[in-house]
Amino acid sequence: MSVLDAKVVFNKCLAKEIYFLLLKAKEVSLKAKPGQFVMLKLYPDRLAFLRRPFSICLSLPEKDIFAILYTIKGKVTQSMSSLNTGATISVVGPLGNPLKLPENISDLILIGGGIGIAPLISFLPMYHEKAHFIAGFRSSEDYIDVKEIFPGTYEYIVATEDGSKGYKGTSLDLFRQYTKSRVFNNAIVISCGPLAMLKKLSKICAQAKLTCYVFLETHMACGMGLCQGCVVKTKQGYKRVCKDGPIFSAEEICWEEIRD
């Protein structure tokens, strides 16, 4: 884990208000494991006091580069979207407890809701041959072609709420459709997206007896496990999303106690 200044390699708009940012930071790219994140701060730092967490979507250690995919949500991401090549960003990371998948999994089903696809992409370099990537977007306007970010042999299927691209419906509708006609012997589901979606998914997976992991997002102050601010209620008590997560087994989360 490091605290360092990273240079922007490029910062490209991929869809409506969605950007792909490549940062040069050797130590981060070398150490990053699937599912980890970084805490970023822009210069000059008057814009915001605390750092902001961003999932690492890809890490290319051979090029000393890692990537994040972000959407414009507030003043920090707004300002981030105008960064040019060569600009400097302060980085703390990689952070978070990486998920160790069992060796013998047959299928990895990745389900992303909107910008929630970002951390799921980080599993593709290692698992694309076993992966099924299901993504849901509002419309073709915020659609991201994950195959463009990481080409591979996995299946990439898309749903949009208005039907303007792919299947008409949500990622969960599509997931239900997709799994109906298939039999998985040792599959694992990993998902990231809005809380309401993760809640529903955890029920679906429990019924279907599918092992399910979810990425949770809470307001973080430090991202390093110091302040215990970003906790989520689990069956074993409060756990820190930054240090114990951000990936949790869907079964261990007390969903009814989380406000969405």
Partner: peptide, 15 residues
Amino acid sequence: QGNPPPRTCETACGM
């Protein structure tokens, strides 16, 4: 076990 979340919030020049 501490207080229910959310537990932190950014404010002007602090938290």
